[in-house]
């Protein structure tokens, strides 16, 4: 018995070492930095130990703006993209002949580079000296004035941001949900049909519970992904996100480390720990709900 345990441990050793060096150690290190006041990476020195970094970060208007942006993106894009993906997958599974074509179309953004998709969005939404952008042309056709989506009001920028995020995460979710729908055995639908189950009841009582593990998986990974958003923002609004008012928490951490105003690893660490705590709490709540709702 002991021997067996030792053997198992030996097999696991490379993975444990790897995880330890690249995941656990940095995490602990970040935690340590976040409590060291005025840490200087060049001299490896600091003034003292305390919660000052947290206090600074939590009073920093840029951080608060980033936190607000992140929360808005999370709260809007996760439900919207999951619902949209569900609707599209249901449509795809019911029209058999077109399924393959549509699957390719919806999957294109997934295999396309984020920055390339961002460029397309810029072209669609950006107002320049020569043109108002494609979207504005459409809006104008309806008689409304042009809106500057990239440098204009906050809600317009946020709209583009959420639109873009949903667009980027949609293909993966559609892929997962169409295969989840396809894996529900036909016999359940046949049984329901013989019993004269109304269509809507079939959906809520059979389809939805059967694919619920996959939906929860998408919601959990969706939350985590949205909380870590950063590159999508850069793709649309450029690297100076603070100036655009569109920064995210990860963007703030990056700026604190390497940005023009960077060089503050202690502040960055404190912000990283705060983000970690938020993501951790949300994920635990998610898992608890999904445990209670899915039963098999």
């Amino acid at each position: 018995m002991k021997n067996k345990n030792l053997k198992a441990f030996l097999y696991l050793l490379p993975a444990i070492l790897f995880l330890g060096v690249f995941m656990v150690y940095p995490l602990i290190d970040v935690l340590v930095y976040s409590f060291e006041e005025g840490y200087n990476s060049a001299s490896q020195s600091f003034f003292g130990v305390g919660a000052y970094n947290y206090s600074y970060v939590l009073h920093d208007t840029y951080f608060l703006q980033a936190l607000k942006n992140t929360f808005i993106i999370v709260i809007i894009t996760v439900p919207v993209s999951t619902l949209l993906a569900l609707l599209i997958s249901l449509g795809l599974s019911s029209i058999k002949p077109l399924r393959n074509l549509f699957q390719t179309v919806y999957f294109l953004p997934y295999v396309t580079n984020t920055l390339a998709v961002g460029l397309v969005f810029m072209i669609l939404f950006k107002k320049t000296a020569y043109t108002d952008g494609l979207v504005n042309l459409v809006i104008k056709a309806f008689g409304a004035g042009p809106i500057d989506f990239i440098d204009g009001p906050y809600w317009a920028k946020m709209f583009v941001m959420c639109f873009y995020t949903v667009w980027v995460v949609l293909p993966f979710k559609i892929l997962i949900l169409t295969s989840a729908l396809a894996s529900v055995k036909d016999d359940y639908y046949k049984a329901a049909k013989i019993d004269g189950t109304p269509k809507f009841r079939v959906f809520t009582k059979i389809t939805l519970p059967m694919i619920s593990p996959m939906i929860f998986y998408l919601v959990i990974t969706g939350f985590i992904g949205a909380f870590k958003a950063y590159s999508d923002e850069v793709a649309i609004f450029g690297t100076d996100l603070n100036a655009a008012g569109m920064n995210t928490v990860v963007g703030y951490i990056y700026d604190m480390l390497y940005g023009d105003s960077g060089g503050y690893p202690s502040y960055a660490s404190a912000a990283a720990i705060i983000l970690f705590l938020i993501v951790f709490t949300v994920t635990v709540i998610n898992l608890m709900i999904s445990k209670r709702k899915t039963v098999y």
């Binding site: 055995k185 016999d187 359940y188 046949k190 049984a191 013989i194 009582k205 059979i206 519970p209 059967m210 899915t294 039963v295 098999y296």
Partner: peptide, 12 residues
């Protein structure tokens, strides 16, 4: 009434 070969009971 139809009983399927694999019963098709709703697992949830």
């Amino acid at each position: 009434g139809l009983v399927f070969q694999n019963y098709a009971l709703y697992p949830h």
